[in-house]
Simulated assay, not measured.
Amino acid sequence: MKVAVLIPCYNEEITIGKVIDDFKRVMPEADIYVYDNNSKDKTSEIALEHGAIVKKEYRQGKGNVVRSMFRDIDADYYIMVDGDDTYPAEFAHKLLDPLIREEADMTIGDRLSNGTYYNENKRNFHDFGNNMVRWLINKLFKSNIKDIMTGYRGFNREFVKAMPVLSARFEIETEMSIHALDKKFLIKEVAIDYRDRPEGSESKLNTFSDGFKVLKTIFMLFKDYKPLLFFNIWTVFFLVVGLLVGVPVLVEFADTRYITKVPSAILAVGLVLLSMNTFACGVILDTVVKQQRFNYELYLNDLRDKYKK
């Protein structure tokens, strides 16, 4: 059984040595990979000194790092953790065990259930953003995931090799969660402790700009994964507005047999036609997505057969 610990890094010289040592202590059998994403400090040098396998990713952004990790590294099981020492290595086996027992394809390190995240995290807007993203995804995909944005996760080989990473930056956690939900991968959450960054270590997240990117990702993935529901919402919106604009025109015509509100009539007809077109787009794209899901299942079957051999 081959286990790989994946650590994406950008300017983590203060913490990376401890993170590597902690995982070597609790998982001595694992290969530890540090992917340096154009760090301007001594992250790579320190990682090498502590015995990690160091690789470079020159395209900036965590999503780009994860894409390269998933493509390059071959293992049976993977543990992904940030290099900022906020996630204790002692929980790695709790993330790994459900994968080995085939109870999960992806395990999620849930920072929120133990309450340590709210005690340790000093960025209140992050709490608000996490809660909003969690609510949106759970509503859209009828799930009950407690921690969508955590960077501490475990994967089996099938999930890693079948995960199409499209996001470039910190939206990657959201993308992985939605992909797993849509493709019916087994997900299991494991309650973990969380600790804030040590003094001198700075977060790379920008609450507002990165939060906007995450919301944009949810919006786009909602359109891609559930087009019928997405376009039906717009269908109802255009239809309701069209009726609101058009009803006075119809009332006037019923009373006088004449239309004086010509602009309103044109707008109402345009909105109703737009509503019909939007509904047709949703039906067509829903058919395309169902065919894509069918092909994806066949791809997973081929992937399983490949690794069994």
Rank of each mutant, 00 (worst) to 15 (best):
G242L: 01
R257M: 14
P227A: 08
G246N: 04
L221G: 03
P227K: 06
D255S: 09
L243Q: 00
V241M: 04
I233V: 09
T260A: 11
W234H: 11
V241L: 13
T260I: 11
A254L: 14
K223G: 05
L228C: 02
V245Y: 01
T256I: 06
T235L: 01
K223A: 09
T256S: 14
I259P: 09
L239M: 12
L250M: 15
I233G: 11
F253V: 06
G242H: 01
V236Q: 06
L229A: 11
L244S: 05
K226L: 13
D224Y: 09
M220E: 12
L239R: 08
L229Y: 09
T235H: 02
F222N: 12
A265Y: 04
T260Q: 12
F237H: 09
E252G: 12
Y225F: 15
K223P: 04
L228M: 10
M220I: 11
L243C: 10
R257P: 01
K226Q: 13
T260V: 13
V236I: 14
D255Q: 14
V240Y: 00
G242T: 01
A265T: 07
A254P: 08
V247M: 06
F237V: 13
Y225H: 07
V247I: 15
F231I: 03
V245E: 02
A265K: 02
L221M: 15
V241C: 03
F231C: 07
T260F: 14
N232Y: 10
D224L: 10
F238V: 01
A265Q: 08
A265W: 05
T235D: 00
G246Q: 00
V241T: 05
L228G: 04
F237T: 09
F253L: 15
V249S: 03
S264K: 10
P248K: 09
E252I: 10
P227D: 05
T256Q: 13
K261H: 11
V236Y: 09
F230I: 04
Y258H: 15
V236H: 06
M220L: 13
